[in-house]
């Protein structure tokens, strides 16, 4: 909390009551991405549909894979953020990321969540879904300036840009 006050950690909007003992609780933003490409090819831009989550919620079937995002914009030029599920989310059978929990120091924006349901689950906009922890780095810091900087809402993969 102190580091947020000093501007060393950025979380917007920030609410004191979402601070936990060693992390900050994140809410689900109201947009989702569903891929429509039959085969995902990292060399090609993926096709997808952008949807809104209505206030009454939206169901995910077991096996569904969607991209969501955190409602908060997060980042730090001083610490390394790592995204985790809330244990309640995980106990529902919902993964919030499937492989990439580590965020680059210097990146800022809505974090994209890789939502994978192992059981039927219902998503509501603004629900508490994930948490972020911040880790101390060792060494000189060179800030992130990559392709997902200033992400707004869920961002589909831009891996095709690596092959240009």
């Amino acid at each position: 909390m102190e580091e947020v006050g000093k501007g060393k950690i950025k979380i917007t909007p920030f609410d004191k009551k979402r601070i936990t003992t060693n992390s900050y609780d994140l809410r689900l933003g109201d947009k989702l991405i569903r891929y429509t490409s039959k085969i995902m090819d990292p060399k090609k831009e993926p096709k997808f549909k952008l949807m809104s989550i209505p206030p009454e919620g939206i169901n995910m079937k077991a096996g569904d894979f969607l991209l969501g995002s955190t409602k908060e914009k997060i980042g730090s030029d001083f610490y390394v953020p790592i995204i985790h599920a809330k244990s309640g989310t995980a106990r529902m059978g919902l993964f919030v990321h499937i492989t990439a929990d580590l965020i680059d120091i210097g990146s800022f924006g809505n974090a994209t969540l890789q939502l994978y349901a192992t059981l039927p689950v219902r998503l509501y906009p603004g629900m508490l879904i994930a948490q972020v922890s911040f880790w101390k780095p060792q060494g000189k810091i060179i800030l992130y300036n990559g392709k997902y900087q200033n992400s707004q809402g869920p961002m589909a993969s831009m891996t095709h840009k690596d092959f240009d």
Partner: peptide, 17 residues
Amino acid sequence: MSLIGRSSMGRLGLFLQ
């Protein structure tokens, strides 16, 4: 060491580790 997938691959639905 912690070895994970990159977010660009996770976003395409690939678990790595």
